[in-house]
């Protein structure tokens, strides 16, 4: 027997009471996913993009499946642990590329998600990952930066180590090692924390380039040049096709047209040969490995229907997300490919 008698007694008493409480648990009429569902995310912030994007998707799913679903911002380590413990399907996770980049960079607490979990459907892209310089910087373009490092100049880039914020930096370093072999160590990482810390490094003159986002830094790019805080985009890591799907008005006062100036073909970062580097921050589901495959299918189906209706795309675009639904199997394959490409870069510059 699994539980002591008292607990079973207590449990069955509770069960009876729950019946008495009536509509305590919303039960889906059909489908293997039932009861209350908790979606944990890899971020602890309820003001950030992961939370925002997850609640858009989860709200739609809950309505479509007629279930109680709730997003909890528990953070990466706690989210993985919660997912590990629950194979019933009551705990799901939504996270982004950090989940495998953390593993590639060897960050403690990250495992290979393709082995340890089931990778679920992708739902959206945040196209905003960007690199910025001070408005009065001598570097006009990303090529200037690559050339300067190739010339032996030290260029300091403020990033948050071990993930999404570092991958663009790594690609840049890789490009320098290809175009100017042996000079890649001139590109130096300034390891720092939040967006405000990165901005601060720029204001303090402790960094020449920072990683940022279109959303958080757009207003800084519209300050006048004599303002100490003024910045300028030099590179958006997103694919050209991703930015092309953004709303025409872009974000704030920066139109889609202006944003397109900072992606391919205007800005290219080589990965050797014909290949160039791009990075879209994609949000996707992660499931417990032992979860009933029928649930995977159920969510895939529900999302297919939701995306077919077209309402969710509008909501996502309103919040500057690019809709990007791929059912589980396709998503898993696609993301595995993506990981392998970046693995090469990270190996190269070690």
């Amino acid at each position: 027997m699994k539980f002591p008698k008292t607990i079973v007694g207590l449990g069955s008493a509770a069960m009876m009471m729950s019946v008495a409480f009536g509509a305590g648990v919303a039960q889906a009429a059909d489908g293997p996913l039932r009861g209350n569902v908790r979606v944990v995310i890899g971020s602890t912030s309820t003001g950030g993009d992961t939370y925002q994007n997850s609640s858009i998707v989860v709200d739609q799913l809950a309505e479509h499946l007629d279930l109680n679903m709730k997003v909890d911002a528990v953070g990466a380590s706690a989210a993985f642990r919660a997912l590990d413990r629950d194979s019933r399907g009551n705990t799901l996770m939504i996270f982004h590329d950090q989940s495998y980049l953390g593993y590639l960079y060897g960050v403690q607490g990250y495992d290979n998600i393709f082995e340890k979990y089931t990778v679920g459907p992708t739902v959206a892209i945040n196209p905003g990952n960007a690199y910025l310089v001070p408005k009065d910087s001598p570097y006009e373009t990303l090529d200037d930066i690559i050339a300067a490092a190739g010339d032996g100049e030290t260029v300091r880039v403020a990033i948050q180590p071990g993930g999404v914020s570092e991958i663009g930096f790594s690609a840049l370093k890789n490009a320098i090692s290809i175009e100017h072999p042996g000079m890649e160590d001139n590109l130096v990482a300034v390891n720092t924390g939040s967006q405000s810390d990165k901005n601060q490094q720029l204001f303090d003159g402790q960094a020449d380039v920072i990683n940022g986002t279109v959303q958080a830094n757009e207003q800084y790019t519209r300050l006048s040049e004599d303002d100490q805080k003024a910045m300028r985009f030099v590179w958006l890591t997103a694919r050209q096709g991703t930015i092309q799907q953004a709303p025409e008005n872009g974000l704030g006062q920066t139109s889609r047209e202006q944003l397109l100036e900072f992606v391919e073909p205007n800005v290219t970062v080589t990965m050797g040969g014909d290949e160039t580097f791009t990075f879209d921050k994609e949000f996707f589901f992660l499931y417990n490995k032992d979860m009933d495959p029928a649930i995977v299918e159920q969510i895939d189906e529900a999302l297919t229907e939701i995306y077919a209706e077209g309402e969710i795309q509008e909501i996502q675009k309103n919040s500057f997300f690019i809709p990007n639904f791929k059912p589980s199997e396709q998503a898993s394959e696609y993301l595995y490919d993506k990981m392998s490409r970046y693995e090469g870069i990270i190996e190269n510059i070690k």
Binding site: V107, Q108, G109, Q160, P161, T192, G193, D197
Partner: peptide
């Protein structure tokens, strides 16, 4: 951990 979100090495 010496948190990554503070710029630590995690």
């Amino acid at each position: 951990d010496y948190s990554i979100s503070d710029g630590g090495n995690g």
